[in-house]
């Protein structure tokens, strides 16, 4: 999901450290002592690259994630819901901003990161490649998708890289508001008319499996989880997080009077966990590789907004440069006088 990059082939991170960098052993020892790594600290090049990849793809997920929910702002069915949704989508933009800044502390530039997104080189969470067909999807996304995001991101608050860990603490506080507002939308639908309740049930039917896929492939199929664990970037495995999410969510669905679309879902007293059916990994990889229902539309929307905004950004730069030049020439006149 937001840590999806840790599960996918890493095309550019090297393994060799240039001279003067700490040995891998010394670095791992710092991490084992739970020390935070800060921007000015020496770090293995592969660690730095892996973090840039992880943090930038997390940032992209926040920004692309504004689109599916943004789709319902103008049609929100009450003014209160409209305000809450606007604030929520705005928060996601803010998350994108802190995360791009955190990646910049590692020497990445925002322009390069955005280029990588727009060229299709960088990924973002696959969940945002599903459509928001009904208002109920806004509730379901908050409840399930933000709920899964919290589960994934809380361990990142203890990530070994200081700026990322601190960004996550701030983000997680807002995510819990997102989840509550989503749950509240679904609750209102479930307590509403039969048509509203049906919207909620259909929405949960569509989002349940994609949400479980947000936690990524099975631990046995995840390419980078081992290294990310050793570096203290990722602390809990995909399968463990997924299980926790299922265990927490099943009683919430029951409280709402909604069913979850899995005939194999059943309490297993021996394990102390819910058993659940197999995920459709073909679908998972299809969406990751770009063939989901909305991949093209999402990327298109991002590229279009960026290109349409180009003249705005250029005007700001030109104006600032001219202003600075004027300030310098006034100052030099004063010095000359």
């Amino acid at each position: 999901m937001y840590t999806q990059s840790l599960d996918l082939p890493n095309t550019d991170a090297g393994n060799t450290d240039s001279a003067g960098l700490p040995t891998e052993a010394a670095f791992l020892a710092r991490i084992a002592r739970d020390e935070k790594i800060e921007p000015q600290d020496a770090m293995p090049e592969a660690y730095r690259k892996s973090l840039i990849r992880q943090i930038s793809q997390h940032a992209h997920s926040e920004v692309v994630g504004m689109l599916p929910e943004g789709n319902w702002i103008t049609r929100a069915p009450s003014l209160k819901r409209k305000e809450i949704l606007l604030a929520k989508v705005q928060d996601e933009g803010g998350h994108g901003l802190y995360l791009y800044s955190a990646a910049e502390t590692l020497g990445a530039s925002r322009d390069d990161m955005i280029d990588a997104l727009h060229s299709g080189k960088a990924k973002y969470s696959s969940i945002f490649n599903y459509p928001t067909d009904s208002w109920a999807d806004i509730g379901t996304i908050g409840w399930l998708v933000d709920g899964a995001a919290i589960m994934n991101q809380v361990p990142l608050c203890r990530c070994s890289y200081g700026p990322y860990a601190r960004a996550m603490i701030r983000v997680c506080k807002e995510e819990s508001f997102h989840q509550r507002q989503g749950f509240d939308i679904v609750r209102a639908l479930c307590e509403g008319t039969p048509a509203q309740k049906q919207l909620a049930q259909e929405s949960v039917n569509r989002w349940w499996w994609p949400t479980l896929m947000m936690f990524g492939p099975h631990d046995s199929d995840s390419e980078h989880s081992g290294q990310a664990n050793a570096w203290g970037i990722k602390r809990i495995s995909n399968d463990d997080l997924r299980q926790t999410f299922v265990d927490v969510t099943v009683p919430q669905a029951a409280f709402l009077g909604l069913t979850l679309p899995d005939p194999l879902l059943e309490w297993n007293a021996e394990r102390g966990h819910y058993d659940f059916g197999p995920l459709d990994w073909d679908e998972f990889w299809r969406v990751v590789r770009g063939d989901g229902p909305c991949n093209a539309e999402r990327l298109n929307d991002r590229v279009e907004a960026f290109e349409k905004g180009r003249w705005v950004r250029e005007a700001a730069v030109a104006h600032a440069a001219r202003h600075a030049a004027r300030a310098v020439s006034i100052a030099s006149e004063k010095i000359a006088a």
Partner: peptide
């Protein structure tokens, strides 16, 4: 609010949404 998610830069997206929230709150 139609700009939300489509602004020319993230900072502007956020600023414009602030204005949207202010005036919808006044309404």
């Amino acid at each position: 609010s139609e700009w939300c998610g489509h602004g020319p830069a993230l900072e502007e997206d956020i600023a414009l949404t602030n204005t949207a929230l202010d005036v919808i709150g006044q309404a």
